[in-house]
């Protein structure tokens, strides 16, 4: 039990260290740039305005927003303090809406879409990869190149292809949005149905993209495991092949959890861009409209939220893996 506690303490500490680093980066990166992003925004906001007092107004607003007249370190503490209160600032483009208010619904849409999609893609990919390793001949020859090709289709490319195929050409799915545009979110059956039908394309496009990479990883892992000594030994003790395949699948699949943890950042980034294609009301689309509208506080907050999401997922996967794979237990807990 002592080993466990040490392991978890280490993991949690590491989680907070990366979190702090992420917050600092999120704060400092834009401020390190030669061109002051804030004045750039003000310039953009003020362009086309002839009223000098309106320009002044914008300056005042952004000064209040960022407190840029104060020294950097003080700004940082204000930033952190606000952050701890859940205050992510006020949106420029949707003034006077609070950024946290805009993001709170977007986060739910994104999590609701990506978490199941990535998990399903991961599971299906692993199953196919294991199958390819076990069946080998024929199936493997077809599946491997297909999986390799699929895994190289960019997420947005898959999104556009699916959209054109199923929504534009076959017209069996809606083209964009998270629900029908003439509805107001509520818990009616009609709304839920609309959400489900809008969910299909983004969901499956993310699933398809994640399957390929996972299948390839799982296949080589399974081949490696199938040649392991314990397989031969178990066979010679009369254990059925089906049972042995079970051992192999489990042993090959567990490290895939780490594989998922390592690639989750890339997967989420890809899926966020895919969201834009479907105008899905999640963080990706929010980020896109924020960038188009030069809404600096919203951009900054979205990137921070995405980072924190990725950190949490990685952290959880790490913990889960440590829990269920005795190989890690043995290697980590003793150390």
């Amino acid at each position: 039990m002592k080993g466990y506690r040490k392991y978890f303490t280490k993991k949690i500490m590491w989680f907070f260290i990366t979190l702090i680093a992420a917050v600092i980066l999120n704060f400092i990166l834009p401020r390190l740039m030669p061109a002051d992003p804030v004045s750039a925004i003000t310039g953009k906001m003020a362009s086309g305005m002839t009223d000098a007092s309106a320009v002044q107004e914008i300056y005042k607003r952004y000064e209040a927003e960022f407190g840029t007249n104060k020294p950097l370190i003080q700004q940082f503490f204000i930033f952190v303090k606000n952050l701890l209160h859940g205050d992510l600032g006020t949106s420029f483009s949707q003034y006077p809406r609070k950024v946290s208010n805009i993001l709170s619904s977007a986060i739910l849409w994104t999590i609701g879409l990506q978490l199941p999609a990535i998990l399903v893609g991961w599971l299906l990919g692993n199953l196919l990869g294991a199958l390819a390793a076990y069946i080998r001949k024929g199936f493997d020859k077809v599946l491997l190149p297909v999986a390799l090709f699929l895994s190289n289709v960019p997420a947005f490319g898959m999104a556009v292809t699916m959209l054109v195929l199923f929504a534009v050409t076959l017209k069996i799915a809606p083209i964009s949005g998270g629900y029908s545009f003439d509805m107001i979110p509520n818990f009616s059956w009609r709304f839920i149905k609309s959400v489900i039908s809008h969910y299909q394309l983004p969901f499956w496009s993310i699933v398809l993209v994640s399957i390929g990479g996972q299948a390839i990883g799982m296949r080589s892992m399974s081949i490696y495991e199938l040649n392991a000594d314990y397989v031969k030994y178990a066979r010679f003790l009369g254990i059925k092949d089906r049972k042995i395949v079970g051992y192999v699948f489990r042993n090959a699949m567990l490290p895939q959890i780490t594989g998922l943890a390592l690639s989750i950042g890339t997967m989420i980034s890809g899926a966020l861009v895919a969201e834009i294609i479907f105008s899905y009301p999640g963080l990706g689309s929010t980020m896109y409209s924020a960038i188009t509208a030069a809404d600096y506080p919203l951009i900054s907050a979205t990137t921070l939220i995405i980072t924190i999401m990725v950190l949490i997922v990685t952290f959880v996967l790490d913990l889960v893996y440590g829990f269920i794979d005795p190989r890690v237990k043995a290697a980590q807990f003793d150390a």
Partner: peptide, 22 residues
């Protein structure tokens, strides 16, 4: 079913890896 393990049993060369690690 009837011979392996019951009539004839085997101890492999590399016992280090003979047991399923998980």
């Amino acid at each position: 079913k009837t011979i392996l393990g019951t009539e004839i049993a085997y101890i492999p060369q590399a016992a280090m890896n003979a047991l399923n690690p998980t």
